[in-house]
Computed example of a mutant assay.
Amino acid sequence: MGKNVLLTGGAGFIGRWVAKRLLDEGHNVWILDDLSNGRESNLAEFMDHTGLKAFVRGTILDEKLLAELFAEYRFDICYHLGASINVQDSIDDPRTTFNNDTIGTFYILEQCKKYQTKVVFMSTCMVYDRCTDAAGIDETHPTKPASPYAGAKIGAENMVLSYYHAYGLPTVVIRPFNTYGPFQKTGGEGGVVAIFLKNELEGKTLNIYGEGTQTRDLLYVEDCARFVVEAGFSDAVNGEIVNAGLGRDIAVNDLALLIAGDSSKIKHVEHIHPQSEIQKLLCNSSKAKQLLNWEPNVSLEEGISRTKAWIAEGGLA
């Protein structure tokens, strides 16, 4: 029997792929999204799917709406991806990020507690301090909230885990590393891979903030979505924090060269918020392997190739 699933942020980049996986697996899915980051067009191919029960345009800050949805559908699992996700925006306007990411998560938790709905909370690798170990960042690595985005996510993580310990609510905090792939925005709010690919395809310069020596562990979105979904169906991760990443990092300079193929097409520009840059991010996903038997399937080169093909075919800007 398919589960009744609430997916917040389901019209977003990762949310869209999580929705696809849940629908492919035969679950009943309700998507809640205020479209501040997401796009309804991301869900176009699912709108006639019998498993997609409703797309609700609304905010997780609307307690009345949440109460009505939970009372009517009594969800088995809530995948909580809805959030403000932009580091720069959080520095310029911390209130919006705190309200969406911390208070919104509290409102979700209150409903989930009422109906014993499992919570899969999407956090971020941006909560971590820089990587200092060749084995990569595991879940015991120090956190460092270098932006209000990271601070809001750490606050929400602690609330999510407190509901496990205080009320016995099944919850899990997941920390995917930098995710990229088809359906990611290729404009200013997009990820570095999507932006670089779009510029390369249009013959434009690839701009790198700062020196470009900062490294990222880049996870292909379908691997990420599989990780997210599996966390909802495993009791082994309840009360846990779990990472997911490729296990390989690449300097932004090297990523740009991999995509552009020519250093003359690359330019360094002044960093907008250098104080919130994390110099080295490398994921250790051994806990995900141990508890979920999850590991990434798609290499960086293959993922970039798939993403480039999607953008070249007219993927959303």
Rank of each mutant, 00 (worst) to 15 (best):
L81C: 07
E295P: 02
A135M: 14
L66P: 02
E295D: 13
Q111E: 15
F75M: 02
Y163G: 00
D76Q: 06
L23W: 07
T102K: 03
L218P: 00
P145A: 15
G151W: 01
K198F: 10
I195V: 09
E202D: 15
D235E: 11
G190A: 11
E301A: 07
G26V: 07
Q111C: 12
M1Y: 08
V252C: 03
K3A: 11
R95D: 12
G58W: 08
G187D: 15
N28G: 12
N297G: 14
A156F: 05
E72T: 13
R216H: 10
A67N: 12
E270T: 04
T307N: 05
N207T: 11
G82W: 01
T179P: 03
R16L: 14
V120F: 02
H49D: 15
S90I: 05
L282K: 09
D133E: 14
M122H: 07
V5Y: 00
E211N: 15
T132M: 10
W17R: 01
G314S: 09
T186Y: 05
G12F: 10
K289N: 13
K113H: 11
C224K: 00
A194C: 04
C283D: 11
H165N: 15
M126G: 13
V242P: 00
K198L: 09
Q88R: 12
T186E: 09
G15W: 06
L291C: 09
P148N: 06
F233W: 00
A54V: 08
I266F: 03
F55N: 08
D76R: 02
V269R: 06
G188W: 07
L35S: 10
S263G: 03
T96E: 13
M1H: 13
G210R: 07
Y149V: 13
V29M: 07
A231W: 00
E277P: 01
R306D: 13
I103N: 07
D129E: 10
S263M: 11
L258I: 07
L43C: 04
D92Q: 10
V298S: 03
G261K: 03
I278N: 08
N28C: 12
S90P: 02
E68S: 12
D249S: 13
Y180F: 15
F98K: 08
H273D: 13
V127T: 13
E211Y: 12
G26N: 09
E139M: 04
S285F: 12
W30Q: 06
H141W: 14
C78G: 05
L69R: 06
H141L: 08
A194E: 15
E277T: 14
R16A: 15
D129S: 14
V192T: 13
G10E: 09
N297H: 11
P274S: 07
T132P: 04
E295N: 11
L257C: 05
L219H: 01
P94L: 10
L246P: 02
K153H: 05
V228C: 00
K53G: 04
A19V: 07
A71W: 07
Y73F: 10
Y73G: 01
L258R: 11
L316V: 14
E200F: 12
S263K: 14
L219S: 00
I278T: 14
E157M: 03
L35T: 11
G190H: 08
C125F: 14
A312C: 04
